[in-house]
Amino acid sequence: MSLRENERRILAEIEDQLSTDDPDLAEVLASFDVDDYIAPEDAGGEWKPWAVCGAIAAVVVGLLVALFLAVPGPTPQEEVPAPAGSGAVTQTLTP
Rank of each mutant, 00 (worst) to 15 (best):
M1A: 13
S2Y: 11
L3Q: 01
L3P: 00
R4C: 09
E5C: 04
E7Y: 01
R8T: 13
R9F: 04
R9H: 03
L11P: 00
L11T: 03
L11V: 02
A12V: 06
E13R: 13
E13Y: 04
I14Q: 10
I14L: 12
Q17N: 10
L18E: 02
S19R: 06
T20K: 14
T20N: 13
T20I: 14
T20E: 14
D21N: 11
D21G: 09
D22T: 02
P23R: 01
D24A: 10
L25F: 08
L25S: 10
A26I: 00
A26N: 00
V28K: 12
L29T: 01
A30H: 12
D33F: 03
D33T: 05
D33N: 09
D33I: 02
V34Q: 04
V34A: 09
D35N: 13
D35F: 10
D35A: 15
D36C: 00
D36M: 00
Y37S: 03
Y37H: 07
I38L: 04
A39C: 09
P40S: 09
P40H: 05
E41C: 07
E41I: 13
A43K: 11
A43I: 03
G44A: 10
G44M: 07
G45I: 06
G45F: 08
E46F: 11
E46C: 11
W47S: 13
W47A: 12
W47M: 11
K48N: 08
K48S: 10
P49K: 05
P49C: 09
A51D: 13
V52D: 13
V52L: 11
V52I: 14
C53W: 13
C53S: 14
A55Q: 06
A57V: 07
A57I: 08
A57F: 07
A57P: 00
A58S: 13
V59L: 15
V60M: 15
V61S: 07
V61A: 15
V61E: 05
G62P: 00
G62V: 02
L63H: 03
L63T: 05
L64K: 02
A66N: 01
A66W: 05
A66C: 06
A66V: 09
L67D: 05
L69T: 02
L69E: 01
A70I: 03
V71M: 08
V71W: 08
P72Q: 02
P72T: 02
G73R: 08
G73M: 06
T75L: 14
T75P: 12
Q77T: 14
Q77W: 08
Q77C: 07
E78K: 14
E78G: 06
E79W: 12
A82L: 03
A82F: 01
P83Y: 03
P83H: 02
A84D: 15
A84C: 04
G85T: 04
G85A: 06
S86K: 03
G87R: 00
A88Y: 10
A88H: 06
V89M: 06
T90N: 13
T90D: 05
T90H: 09
Q91L: 15
T92R: 13
T92F: 15
T92H: 11
L93F: 15
L93Q: 15
L93D: 08
L93Y: 14
P95D: 09
P95R: 15
